[in-house]
Amino acid sequence: MKVLVIDDEAVIRRSIQRAGEKKGHEVYLAENGSEGLAIWSKANPDVVFLDVLMPGLTGPDVLKQRDPNSKAKVVLISAYTGEYNLERAQEHGADLFIGKPFADIFAVIQQAEDLVGK
């Protein structure tokens, strides 16, 4: 499957990329919202890891501007668990919420795979 990671934190992008590729997925990386939106419409990913808090466009901003025809599942990720939960994430149009720090990166990839497989 095609995975898009939109996160301003390089180490997060790299972690998901490495784990995703290891599982045989095609991973695209964007370090901010607008870059993410561009890749989103070009690459048409199956799943998007979207950080909430980013300079410029935030995660929810990106969700508002995404291509309405995209079938991509969205996993909202945030380091600030106090602000976000699944309910909040779904309100914004995301399918899953995973708080940082991840306990297990492969489990995160697995969750994304499950989401797309449903």
């Binding site: 390089a10 808090l53 492969f106």
Partner: peptide, 23 residues
């Protein structure tokens, strides 16, 4: 909250990459 936010990202990276490398 601020510290958590600032530290969680790098920690996530450290932990996740460790896990990947371990695999």
């Amino acid at each position: 909250g601020h510290i958590a936010h600032e530290l969680n990202n790098p920690l996530t990276g450290i932990r996740s990459l460790s896990q990947i490398l371990m695999s």
